[in-house]
Write a protein that binds this DNA or RNA. Structure first.
Lengths: 251, 251
DNA sequence: CGCTTTATTGAGAGATATCAATACTTGTGG
DNA sequence: CCACAAGTATTGATATCTCTCAATAAAGCG
């Protein structure tokens, strides 16, 4: 774990391209400037390195600057549940606030960098900036909602539906960050996808092959191309929010 | 849904027995008095009535005064996932903050009453009372952690383990509220337990019968007695936090 | 007390897991 | 630049847990 103490010129939220997806959403330029002082250091992580471990005391929360991380819970017998994959702009460590120490493990899936947000200082600032306070509540609430939709998936959907939903969720989150949403690299292994979705790696593999056969996707290793979005949405039991009828296949 | 506008004498958080489990945890008497003004009304719900529906705009969050509620997500095809069961002192409606409208449905499992906390007024107050602000963050974070443990259960545990964990979780939460923790009434139907645990009603029924045969519990309809706590904890893949070795069965 | 809802139990079916073999990738060192 | 090793992914065959369908029983309700 490599700590970075940014100099004056590059530590500023006000200059960060992630501003619109991260903590400062909705803040005036003036208020963002106040946040700048919060992020005094960053951390660079190599693939496989952990940002925090369950049980270690919470002093900070983190925002992903680049890269991808996973959070997971593990059982004494070795079983493991991946709770989430975290993309740039997303906040990590929130599960530690309740008890004062992290409940999960956070591990980098690729070389990643996160900004360290000292939590006490953040709470102080949030009391001074109502928009920031509300934004933080929204972040926490959305995190909750995300987990609850994940619960719906694990509790009520079949493997095929879970996987389709997972691919679409990734696609949406990439799109929200300005990336193309129909072709990307999966940063996580099949094992990790399986753990996240509560299914075995072999089932993940089979379902992906089946999707490819049906012409829904093309997949080569971890590079995936979503061909028939509407079809995937249908499989996932959802409707395409960007459905374009003119592209609908006829007959 | 029956609105109650409490008179001066009985609307006060400062007088409520739930103070130590609810929003005011950790606040000084002086600060609790400030909260009193937040809760201007309450709602009485009959069994089956809903407190809010997904999509309706969030103006308030709620704390359970007495009774039990469930929150659930439903799919267009009729499938349903129960996300949580909510006991006195727990806060409801947090999933609505992110988008400004509730994401789930909240429905009473029995006659219940909840306090209405106007959210804007609450945020104002939280900026003035640091302890209240932090307490709210803790509540949100614990909610998150609870859902994440639920994810672990649905994603990685077998039906038997999920059910044992569920019974113990209920037991713990009742104990935290000062109720006896080894004998209580289930306020939810088998169907609701099944939905919460991502298993079918028949499986719930079979597992409960099996637990009873093994001497882990006694169950008659919805009245349940936990006989062998340690055994249940073992089944759930956890360790009894209140394990008393002197009660350990010998041989 | 009969009717409706809820829960239990049994038998068989099905989705996903497990076990096993093969193939593909990636990285390393000669 | 190729060969080998270690890790990762695919595919097949079989097993198993849980679901589904069905019948019965028990409880709650008017």
């Amino acid at each position: 774990m490599n700590y970075i103490f940014p100099d004056e010129s590059n530590n500023k939220c006000s200059l960060c391209v992630l501003g619109q997806f991260c903590l400062p959403v909705g803040l005036s330029a003036e208020d963002v400037a106040k946040i700048d002082s919060l992020v005094k250091e960053r951390v660079r992580l190599q693939k496989g390195e952990s940002l925090y471990r369950h049980g270690s005391p919470l002093t900070s929360v983190y925002s992903v600057r680049f890269g991808t991380l996973k959070t997971e819970y593990s059982l004494p017998d070795g079983r493991l549940q991946i709770i989430g994959f975290h993309l740039p702009g997303e906040i990590l460590g929130l599960d530690g606030i309740g008890e004062g120490h992290y409940q999960s493990d956070a591990i980098a899936l690729e070389e990643s960098e996160v900004c360290i947000i000292r939590f006490e200082a953040f709470e102080d600032l949030a009391r001074q900036i109502p928009v920031l306070q509300h934004q933080f509540h929204r972040i926490l609430s959305r995190e909750l909602t995300q987990d609850q939709r994940h619960l719906l998936s694990l509790g009520s959907l079949r493997a095929e539906e879970r996987l389709a939903g997972f691919l679409l969720n990734l696609s949406q989150r990439l799109a929200a960050r300005g990336y193309i949403n129909n072709e990307f690299d999966l940063r996580m292994s099949r094992v990790e996808i399986g753990s996240y979705l509560g299914i075995q790696i072999e089932t993940v593999s089979r379902m992906l092959s089946r999707f490819a056969e049906s012409g829904l996707i093309q997949i080569k290793q971890r590079h995936i191309k979503l061909i028939d979005m509407d079809g995937l949405y249908e499989l996932a039991g959802q409707t395409n929010p960007h459905h374009n009828p003119s592209l609908k296949k006829t007959g």
